[in-house]
């Protein structure tokens, strides 16, 4: 399972966010370029309809493929109280013929996206990953060269950390605590509950830009 929150930031403030993340994490950023294909089960297939994502990492010289299944979010009054979404996710590396495999299994392409951005991986109580993503759609099937932004001028920020049934409370606390550092730049909330931009962003970004990078908090 994973603990996850998301937020949005204007592209003009991404550099400031990067400086902040660099300072907080103390690790170098990693670039990513991922072609994501969302597949849904055919009309009569399966006890329930299902969805699976194929991720093709284009950042490496030889593209590598991963299958990702995002399960249901944790429910109940306890989960409602949490500021972080706790959900099951399972990933598996697969060979490059995975798309053919799922098509043969009766899955259909629902949509595809090109996600480009950078991420920081670091340990702060939990193994936290922060991704800053520009999401693009393809006007023509699979033609990633012609991808255009879905939300021009806006990027998605996601903070996530792997957890288990035994430790998710600590991981939720770690993610929540980390999000407070980012609060001057963006609101982070459960996926599907985006709360918009923060009014302090311009001032906070200007301050960060003037201080520059390299400060480990």
């Amino acid at each position: 399972m994973e603990c996850v929150v998301q937020g949005i930031i204007e592209a003009q403030h991404v550099e400031a966010l990067e400086i902040l993340l660099q300072g907080l994490s103390g690790v170098p950023r990693e670039h990513f370029k991922i072609h994501e294909l969302c597949l849904k089960s055919g009309p009569n297939l399966g006890a329930v309809s299902s969805e699976v994502r194929l991720l093709c990492n284009l950042e490496r010289p030889e593209p590598s493929w991963t299958v990702r299944h995002i399960g249901g979010a944790m429910r109940g009054p306890g989960a409602e109280q949490l500021s972080v979404l706790v959900r099951t996710t399972t990933e598996s590396k697969v060979s490059k013929n995975a798309l053919r495999f799922f098509y043969a299994l009766g899955y259909k392409l629902d949509h595809e996206l090109l996600k480009v951005g950078f991420m920081f991986h670091f340990h702060r109580v939990a193994l936290i990953t922060v991704t800053v993503t520009s999401t693009n759609k393809m006007p023509k099937l699979h033609v990633i060269e012609e991808a255009i932004p879905v939300t021009p001028g806006m990027q998605l920020v996601e903070v996530s950390a792997p957890a288990t049934a035994d430790n998710y409370n600590e991981v939720v606390a770690a993610v929540s605590s980390f999000c407070e550092y980012l609060a001057p730049l963006l609101h982070l909330s459960k996926p599907g509950h985006l709360t918009g931009l923060v009014p302090t962003v311009a001032a906070a970004a200007a301050s960060l830009m003037s201080k520059g990078s390299g400060q480990v908090l």
């Binding site: 299902s50 697969v94 060979s95």
Partner: peptide, 25 residues
């Protein structure tokens, strides 16, 4: 292995867990 399609997929062992969760097979 899909014999009809002459296809063999190599995956991490937890692909079995994904197949269970999909409930399509």
């Amino acid at each position: 292995i899909l014999r009809g399609q002459r296809l063999v997929l190599e995956a991490d062992s937890n692909i079995q867990s994904i197949m269970e969760k999909l409930q399509s097979y």
